[in-house]
Structures are given as structure tokens and as C-alpha cells.
């Protein structure tokens, strides 16, 4: 436990002493902010229109602003996750510091969990920035906070799964760029898998669509905590970390 904490601290620190953390935070906040104000502007316009027509529609912030925004956030996340995980192991392998970690009295799994949790924390920080936008909503409207919280939980779970995959890919190479590009490819693939369900209803298409990370976010986006989807993400996290552990082990046998 203590070792996980030591590694976590070291990783998190190295995000924040390099420009990468600030770059990620700024980019994410900017892009999300853009989506947010866009959605809000549209919402306000719709509201005014419906009033002018004299038939006020029931307007719902949760439905019309928060829900699409959360789905957007989950997609934007896909693009940022490779940048968070790419250096985790690749850089240690390149610089030789992996020799220090592996020859210290620390279990592999503690190293992996420390690094993965640091990556998740980094992503959490990015989400925190987006929450500022929502704080604004709470000030001027009265959205329901529960679906929002569940949506954020979904974002974290989804990121957890993708970060675990990214961590695994980072153990496969010494080159950060390759790790990043491969992770991006996999993230993208896991996203677009869902498209096959658009034209195909056979069993294989359903399986592929089931594997898509985006499909499972829908329920969270609606503010519904569906155990099936939570379990899907937890499984991805588990598998990602499991393969990372196996990869670290075989790394030693091979290298």
C-alpha cells in the first residue's frame, strides 16, 4: 500500500513538473469550455424561441445541456488518454530507471497500480476543470446534481479502462511516441466499433458493438447507474492491468 503511494506521488509529480500536465489541462479545458458555451448558447436560443412562439416547452438543463456535454467529454477524453499514459513505462525503459524500480523491494503490481492511479488522478484533475463550467450552471439554474455525479463517475470509469490499456501498451515499447500512437489507435478503434451496429444486427456485430467503450457510456450520460455498464468498465480496467503485469513479467524473461 505504502509503495503504491510512493510511486503514485512520484508519477504525479513528474506530470506536474513537466509542461505536459499544463498542456493537457489547458487543452481539455479549452475544448470542453467551447462545447459547454456552445451547448449553453444553443439552449438559451431555443428557450427564447419557444417563448416567442408563446408555447413554452419544458426546458431541462440536464437533458439538453449536461447530457450531450458528458458524451462529448467522453469522446474528447479518448484523444487525451494516450498523452497521459504514453510515458508511464516507455520512458522508464528508455532511460533505464526501470532497473531501479524492478530491483527495489516493491511488487510489480504496486508499481503498476501506482502508475495507473497517477494517470487516473491526472485525468481526474482534467475533469475537475470541466466541473467549473457546471458550477456556473448551478449558480444560474437548478439542474439535478445526481445525474451529473453519475455522469462523472462514468467518465472516470471509462478513462480508467482506457488508461489501463494505455499503461499496458506503454510496457511494450521504449518509444513514447509509438506507445502514444498505438494507444490512440486502440482508443479510436474501441470507439468506432459501435458503428457496426448501425447497419448490421448479426451476433458478431452485437459483440463488436458491445466491446465499444462508447456504448457503455450512454447509461452514465443519462444519469443512470447501470451495473452492466459499470461491470464492463471494471472488466476493462482489470484486464488492462492484468496484461500490464504479464507484460512486465515477460519483459524480464525476454530482455
Amino acid at each position: 500500500m505504502r509503495n503504491i503511494w510512493i510511486i503514485w506521488r512520484k508519477e504525479l509529480r513528474s506530470y506536474f513538473v513537466s509542461p505536459i500536465a499544463y498542456l493537457l489541462l489547458t487543452m481539455f479545458a479549452l475544448i470542453f469550455g467551447f462545447f459547454f458555451w456552445n451547448a449553453l448558447g444553443y439552449f438559451v436560443m431555443m428557450g427564447m424561441e419557444s417563448q416567442m412562439r408563446g408555447q413554452p416547452m419544458p426546458m431541462n438543463l440536464n437533458e439538453e445541456v449536461i447530457r450531450p456535454l458528458l458524451s462529448n467529454a467522453s469522446v474528447i477524453g479518448l484523444f487525451f488518454i494516450p498523452m497521459i499514459t504514453m510515458r508511464l513505462f516507455a520512458e522508464e525503459k528508455r532511460s533505464g530507471t526501470i532497473e531501479l524500480l524492478v530491483t527495489s523491494p516493491v511488487r510489480d503490481i504496486e508499481i503498476i497500480l501506482g502508475k495507473w492511479l497517477a494517470a487516473l488522478t491526472m485525468y481526474g484533475c482534467m475533469l475537475l476543470f470541466t466541473a467549473l463550467n457546471f458550477a456556473f450552471l448551478f449558480k444560474y439554474g437548478n439542474p439535478d446534481w445526481k445525474p451529473l455525479a453519475i455522469g462523472y463517475l462514468g467518465l472516470l470509469l471509462q478513462a480508467g479502462g482506457l488508461l489501463a490499456i494505455g499503461t499496458f501498451i506503454s510496457t511494450l515499447t521504449k518509444n513514447q511516441i509509438i506507445a502514444g500512437a498505438a494507444t490512440f489507435g486502440v482508443c479510436l478503434l474501441l470507439w468506432i466499433l459501435e458503428w457496426v451496429s448501425g447497419y448490421e444486427t448479426a451476433a458478431w456485430a452485437q459483440v463488436l458493438a458491445y466491446m465499444s467503450v462508447i456504448t457503455h457510456f450512454e447509461s452514465f450520460g443519462k444519469g443512470v447507474l447501470d451495473m452492466k455498464d459499470a461491470i464492463y468498465y471494471l472488466t476493462v480496467i482489470f484486464l488492462g492491468l492484468f496484461f500490464t503485469a504479464r507484460s512486465m513479467e515477460s519483459l524480464r524473461w525476454r530482455s
Binding site: I6, K10, S14, S95, G96, I98, E99, L100, S104, P105
Partner: peptide, 28 residues
């Protein structure tokens, strides 16, 4: 065991004192 690998395993973004503290923690 204390091990000095062929190329010293240093993190370029850490300061010396901070690095030694980190390794010390790692070693218990």
C-alpha cells in the same frame, strides 16, 4: 541489495536530494 546499474537510473526531472529521498522511500 544495493544496485548501481551500468547507466545510473536517474529521473532527469528530479533534484538530487528529492531523488535520493524517493529511492530511500522505495527501499523502505
Amino acid at each position: 541489495i544495493g544496485y548501481l546499474p551500468e547507466s545510473p537510473p536517474l529521473y532527469p526531472e528530479m533534484e538530487t536530494g528529492e531523488y535520493l529521498t524517493f529511492v530511500g522511500r522505495l527501499k523502505g
